[in-house]
Amino acid sequence: MNASNNPSTRPQSSNPAPETCLSLENVSISYGNGKNVAVNNVFMEIPKGKVTAFIGPSGCGKSTVLRALNRMNDLIEGCGLTGRVLFDGQDLYDKRVDPVEVRRRIGMVFQKPNPFPKSIYENIAFGARINGYQGDMDELVESSLRKAALWDEAKDKLKESGFSLSGGQQQRLCIARTIAVEPEVILMDEPCSALDPISTLKIEETMHELKKIFTIVIVTHNMQQATRVSDLTGFFNVTDLVDYEGKVGCLEEFGETERIFNSPAQQATQDYVSGRFG
């Protein structure tokens, strides 16, 4: 074992840089049993307790990378990954890793609100219950709804169907549902793309509260949103590859949000954040 991987020798207090939560090492992801490369050679260190945003034009593989972080791509037939994704020092794609366990510690909120066809209460209790939650369920439901800023709107109709809520409320219910499992990381795949501006604002406020407790990774098409919510930004782009037909996604630049938007190192990043393409 490498000495630097041993937690006892890691210089935690002397190092001002935040602890790494997820680390991608030369990750390439392909669909169709390796025929279509979606994203190539991604290196990235996502720090703990921060909000990291992925931006980039359509088809650049940002959602694909996000879904690789909790093995959601396993559900897509013929999707393959090379390289390593380390979470707390463990390779998520190790053969011995149970993807169900991974998803309990790395939760996900999807693009379209997808509440279960159950009551609001049951929507939240479901995940906790299957994870063997032993405590007071009423309390957990209330605290999860409070963290997702939905308690005031939903407290009088916990027994009603999750579908009785508006789109933005449904999405916050999905966030509450994810929080209730008490993961360490929350992945959000364009969580506001199906919502109106006011709901979007509420979700962004929720995220500011959540980042005190969780590490958040968010994919967004909305650059203003990235500047509003994120500490770090990764810009993905599509490029041509030698000896490969078609476009392939890659990580163009990754750094502090402030720097990516104000003084990016790459010309493509500059063009994208100033709205010249994409």
Partner: peptide
Amino acid sequence: PQELRWGAIGVGASKFVTITRITLPT
């Protein structure tokens, strides 16, 4: 809808639990 299965799997449900508790009742 596929999103419903994703939702269940995203909160850490196994395939069996997803089918018996979410997909089949729906």
